[in-house]
């Protein structure tokens, strides 16, 4: 007997929650308990009095699974609402990475040249290394990191996706 898994697609969910202790464990734990994927997760408080947080989760699943994820999340008492930004359509997604590259000579120059193409900023430098800050859609950050491998990539720190709907309405 084989175990089957259905077709899936990535979705970016924006979840507004009461900023109570354990809220992240609650949401993340529900995903694990019900077997949903988490590709990336970010959380910060977003209201003036720090009482509300926005959790941005990139998850994958079939249409049915995504609907389940949304309704299962929405019914948790501390959750205000869940927006599927991918379904909503026009929205902005950003991912930020700090990328450390070490090297001398040609590698160093090439790293700077690529950074320029990606509009990555130098936020730290020594004679043998740079730390670049790159922001953009996840794919752009991915390709920048891939390119840096060839010119002396040392390590990466990355925020994961944050996202918000376009236009004047709240998402």
């Amino acid at each position: 007997m084989k175990i089957r898994s259905p077709d899936t697609a990535p979705h970016t969910l924006s979840i507004l929650v009461d900023n109570e202790p354990g809220i992240l464990a609650r949401i993340a734990g529900m995903f694990t308990a019900r077997g949903y994927n988490i590709e990336s997760l970010t959380v910060t408080d977003v209201s003036e009095d720090s009482s509300v947080s926005r959790i941005t989760i990139v998850t994958t699943g079939s249409q049915n699974v995504i609907e389940q994820i949304i309704t299962q999340t929405e019914r948790m008492p501390p959750v205000y609402r869940v927006t599927d930004l991918t379904e909503l359509g026009p929205h902005v997604e950003r991912d930020l990475a700090l990328v450390k590259v070490a090297g001398t000579g040609e590698h160093r120059i090439e790293a700077l040249r690529l950074a320029d193409v990606f509009r990555a900023r130098v936020v730290d430098s020594t004679t043998e290394s740079f730390v670049f800050e790159v922001t953009g859609a996840s794919e752009k950050v991915d390709s920048f990191i891939e390119l840096m491998r060839e010119v002396g990539l040392v390590e990466v720190a990355r925020t994961g996706v944050v996202a918000i709907g376009r236009g004047k309405e709240a998402s």
């Binding site: 202790p21 354990g22 464990a25 609650r26 734990g29 529900m30 308990a33 948790m76 008492p77 501390p78």
Partner: peptide
């Protein structure tokens, strides 16, 4: 207790 019962309650509090 809050950790153990997180997924077997509708909600819980410490």
């Amino acid at each position: 207790t809050v950790g153990i019962t997180r997924h077997c309650t509708k909600h819980n509090y410490l």
